[in-house]
Simulated assay, not measured.
Amino acid sequence: MVLGLIIPATAAWAQTPEPTSTTPAEAPRTEPGRLKITATDATGAPVTGASFQLRDATGAESGQGTTDAFGALDLPSLAPGVYRLSQTGAHDTHYARVPDRDVVVTPGATTTVAINVPFQQSKITVRATDARSGRPLSGATVSLRTDDHTITTLTTTVTGTAAYEIPMSHEVTRVWIRQVRPPHGYETSTAERAVTLTAGEPVTISLSFKTEAAAATSSPPRAASPTAPAGGHALRGHTSPNPSPSGTSSPAASRAKRPSTAAEGTLAQTGAGTTSYYAALAGGLLIIGALALVLARRRARRLR
Rank of each mutant, 00 (worst) to 15 (best):
V2N: 15
I7Q: 04
I7E: 08
Q15W: 06
S21D: 15
P28W: 00
R29S: 13
P32E: 12
G33R: 04
G33W: 04
R34N: 13
A39D: 00
T43V: 07
G44H: 09
G44C: 00
V47N: 08
T48G: 06
E61W: 01
T66D: 13
T67L: 11
D68E: 08
P80N: 04
V82F: 00
R84C: 00
T88G: 03
H91N: 10
T93S: 15
A96M: 02
R97E: 05
V98A: 10
P99L: 13
V103C: 02
V105E: 02
T110V: 14
I115R: 10
K123C: 02
R127H: 07
T129G: 07
D130L: 13
S133N: 11
G134C: 11
R135I: 05
V142M: 05
I151A: 07
I151T: 04
T152H: 04
T155K: 09
T159K: 08
T161Y: 11
E165T: 00
M168E: 01
M168P: 04
V175R: 02
W176S: 03
R178D: 06
Q179A: 08
P182L: 10
V195N: 05
T196F: 06
E201L: 08
A214K: 05
S218C: 02
P220W: 06
P220T: 01
P221M: 06
T227Q: 15
R236H: 02
H238P: 02
T239D: 05
T248C: 03
T248L: 14
S250A: 12
P251W: 13
A252M: 05
A252S: 06
A253E: 15
K257D: 12
R258I: 09
S260C: 12
E264S: 08
E264Y: 08
L267N: 09
A268P: 02
T270A: 08
G271I: 05
A272M: 04
A272E: 02
L281G: 04
G283C: 08
L286N: 04
G289Q: 12
L291N: 11
A292Q: 14
A292K: 14
R297V: 13
R298M: 09
